[in-house]
Design a protein around this nucleic acid. Structure first.
Lengths: 233, 233
DNA sequence: GGTTGTCAAGAGCACTGCTCTCAATACCGC
DNA sequence: GCGGTATTGAGAGCAGTGCTCTTGACAACC
């Protein structure tokens, strides 16, 4: 939550950033209990001892408050993933992949409502604004970083060819990445991300109840298999 | 919508099942535009020319109406998957897998709100009742059926061993399935399902925008790779 | 034919997001 | 320091929500 805005000069400006932060924090505590759709601007205002219309001075609509929460959540899970990656030796690629996977899942389990907010079905009538696409890619970037490092280390299995149309469909993705990856590894990376995010979301939605008993060991195994299929070791 | 209830005798009972059906259908049309959380019981009543309290004679709460929609959606996507599987020659296992995958995705794209209702983040404050777990497994069952058939045909690659703890964590799943599958194939099946459902959900949530341009060909390729990793051909 | 149960309707409660007005007050240029 | 301006919080109000309760009408059964 490092606000990159210019230093507040006047007392009023200071009070404004302070109150804005308090509103967001109170909203987050409400989010964990009531969920995204149950987030009430009036209830937040009540908790802060102010009247509802006053909150609209700080967030022009409920959706803008939601957007602030979304950005915070993206940053939080991105932090968790990057921090987990950083403590692993750079050349232990599979370990790094496992660390990032577990960190992401752990964060999701600890903050299910915020996970649903960023990776779940969008709240009806809410369209994610452009501000969210930047921090939204941090986890994915960490994952691709591992792939890139493994490729640079040379110890990667031979890339297979993918159909031209598939290669073309990933053009925007390739332009976005800071380094080049073979097409097949790119597909594998996207699939690995789908496996990771999909598994977490399905688990949080209860789609594994009455199916898998020990989800900790199962997730670990699935992610290990996924990492090996990526050629990591 | 084949109601398995006993034939309504009196005119009143007939009017009741008729009106119940009309309510559900109107609710579904509202669902596709307003989404799950935006589904308003009053709006449904207005559309039907009745007052809101009258609807409560048929559905004791808004959640019960949602449950009816969920069961319908599970059945619809299950129908789509099973129908797609049925028209493929039984021994073309990869083709069957591709057909089921595409049918599931096509249905999801055609009914995004209903997909979100059943495979997305649960609506806040709503807990899926037991009635939904039965029809909720039809797509998954179709997928495992393909795996079972492929295994019975003998043309399957050699199963690898999985850790004992992982094997144990799938015990409830094994008891549920009507036939035995090797552990590694079971893990592969769960992962394939995660890949399929996860990809569709991520795509519907817009997580592939600015990344993959032609999602049709990309999905086809991803599912083909997944099918091959399952040992299908 | 009378009793019983079901039904639609309406009023009402507590809540929501959001807008508008109004008074108080902090800020800034002079 | 002072006056004009902009920002702020408070309150009322609108339109909407889920849900409950009561009331009167009607069909179904004995």
């Amino acid at each position: 939550m490092t606000t990159a805005s210019p230093a507040p000069r006047t007392a009023r400006e200071r009070a404004r950033v302070e109150l804005t932060r308090e509103i967001v924090e109170t909203a987050r505590t409400h989010l964990v209990t009531a969920g995204a759709a149950g987030l009430s601007l009036r209830a937040v205002a009540r908790d802060l001892g102010m009247v509802s219309s006053a909150v609209y001075r700080y967030f022009p609509s409920r959706d803008d408050l939601l957007t602030a929460l979304i950005i915070d959540a993206y940053d939080a899970v991105g932090d968790a993933a990057e921090t987990a990656d950083r403590v692993i030796r750079r050349d232990r690629f599979l370990d790094r992949w496992m660390a990032v996977s577990h960190a992401t899942r752990d964060w999701a389990i600890a903050h299910p409502q915020e996970w649903a907010l960023i990776y779940g079905s969008p709240v009806p009538g809410y369209a994610a604004p452009e501000d969210t696409i930047g921090p939204g890619t941090r986890v994915s970037l960490t994952l691709t970083q591992i792939l890139g490092d493994a490729l640079a280390a040379g110890g990667h299995s031979t890339p297979t060819t993918v159909p031209r149309a598939v290669s073309r469909s990933m053009r925007t993705l390739k332009e976005f990445l800071p380094y080049a990856l073979p097409d097949s590894l790119l597909v594998g990376g996207v699939m690995a991300r789908t496996q990771l995010f999909g598994h977490i979301s399905l688990e949080l939605d209860g789609q594994f109840t009455n199916t898998i008993s020990d989800l900790d060991v199962f997730f670990d195994h699935v992610m290990r298999v996924t990492g090996r299929e990526l050629g990591l070791s």
